[in-house]
Design a protein around this nucleic acid. Structure first.
Lengths: 138, 138
DNA sequence: ATACAATTCATACTTTAGTATGAGTGATTT
DNA sequence: AAATCACTCATACTAAAGTATGAATTGTAT
């Protein structure tokens, strides 16, 4: 927030300087009007692009962010969420068990709980639902 | 392509008109220099935003577009691709069979072929691989 | 015409996935 | 101290998923 205010302040200052520069160089007569106009056009063109890029970047980031609040709301525990992420990468129960150093039956228990909490019938459906809820990335 | 040329042509024309207008109004003396500069600044600011938005939109679309070439390269048939898309939505073989009006064993055959062609061990892995290859959306 | 690829289906089988139930442990809360 | 929760694990079962094989049909290309 403070950053935004600082940037806008600097911007306004730069514009005022530009205004005065233009006026003086016009009065003194050693610069043509076309040159000044072209300069101003380029400066504002670039400013427009930069500002737009920042805004769109924020929007993009927001749409790809994980909704940690929703994870809590659904009642997914830390371990269950871990398992959910591994499911989404395409691992089998056995592979997940090896990766997390627990038994396959433990993973089965977690998966069952995940399916209930996400209201899914299958793990493939759980992946879809988790994506729609912005719980996992892609 | 022709569209781009047309737009750029119109843009250059508009700029020339702006230049001349500025000069004349300055010479005639009924418009202040600040007003002209402000006008030009606004116009180019807006142009910058518009052009930037279009470029980013295209980039975004490209990154989300389906690579039809890759589908052919992998040797996926039309029907197999249909089944792959349904798998990605989280449907079971039986549900896919009902949706496509064929038997479950037909879907099983398709799924087996899909897994071989995508080099996947499971359907969940197939979803991931298909996403990475930009064959399906998300 | 025939060779070929795509699609369909079946049967039999193996492997995963998922459910149900019960239970033990450690950490945290009341 | 007792209750609660998250995590762990096991067993036994049912339900899907996936493999292998063979075969019939249809449209298309040679």
């Amino acid at each position: 927030m403070q950053k935004t205010i600082f940037i806008f302040g600097a911007l306004v200052l730069a514009l005022l300087v530009l205004f005065q520069l233009s006026k003086y160089s016009l009065v003194s007569g050693n610069t043509s009007i076309e040159f000044i106009i072209a300069g101003i056009a380029i400066v504002f063109f670039v400013i427009g692009i930069i500002i737009n890029k920042k805004v769109l970047y924020k929007e993009k980031n927001n749409s790809e962010e994980i909704d940690h609040e929703k994870i809590k709301t659904l009642g997914l525990s830390k371990r269950e969420y871990e398992v959910l992420c591994e499911i989404a990468t395409g691992l089998s129960n056995k592979e997940i068990a090896e990766k997390l150093f627990v038994s396959e039956s433990t993973i089965k228990t977690h998966v069952s709980n995940i399916l209930v909490k996400l209201n899914a019938k299958r793990r493939t459906q759980a992946i879809q639902i988790a994506k729609e809820l912005r719980i996992i990335q892609f």
